[in-house]
Amino acid sequence: MSVRIRVIPCLDVRDGRVVKGVNFVDLIDAGDPVEQARAYDAAGADELCFLDISASHEGRGTLLDVVRRTAEVCFMPLTVGGGVRSAEDARALLLAGADKVAVNSAAVSRPEVVSDIAEKFGSQCIVASVDARQVEPGRWEIFTHGGRKATGIDALEHAIKLAELGAGELLVTSMDGDGTQNGYDLALTRTIADAVSVPVIASGGVGNLDHLVAGVTQGHASAVLAASIFHFGKHTIAEAHEALRAAGLPARA
């Protein structure tokens, strides 16, 4: 009996539409996040993550509607991230039906936003993002603006601080690995996972099922997030679970 490694597909949503699409068969509208969420629910995803990349205010309103419609038909935990800057932003998403909110850049400029949300809604609903790049062997820094802007903040220190402020889990993304399909930054993931008591989600760079397994066995992550390997039909959620089980890790049957 032990808690399962969570496999979490992540969808990029802009103005209420999925940007990086899923080529599930049988979808009437492949750009509709609700339909994709439903497909992942049926496929047995352990959780789902929406990352909102809307630039506009209207896009945010549309996002709330998407979250509301998704919550009506999906019965797995839903994390929504992107543009969460305050406890008020978090409240709007939680009321719409998100189970957790992921805080990204706001947690860099104002880490207290994490404790604000944790105090009001509980640590269980706050996922703090750690977006990092390696700056020298064994040292990583927090980067913003999609990995283009250095902040000078040490990633490990920042991660420990976010956990202390009340984050219920940390989403650790290697900005070096993101989009490369070369696998997670295992040293980064492990360095943070070993230093905090909350679960760590590995993110950024998954290209195959072995990468998911390594995220846990070598990165010490509690959950593995991926986008393209699932969206483009390269692998199913069931195959991911199977690969984890084949490596002796607990995963859903």
């Binding site: 032990s2 399962r4 969570r6 352990d46 935990p77 269980q124 219920g168 889990e169 509690s222």
Partner: peptide, 26 residues
Amino acid sequence: KIPHMGWNDVIVAPGAPLVAGGEGYF
């Protein structure tokens, strides 16, 4: 790790009403 977060076994006590065995999200 704490919180206990994710799917885990639900092992039912003999004779328990309503609850069935399986995997639930904690």
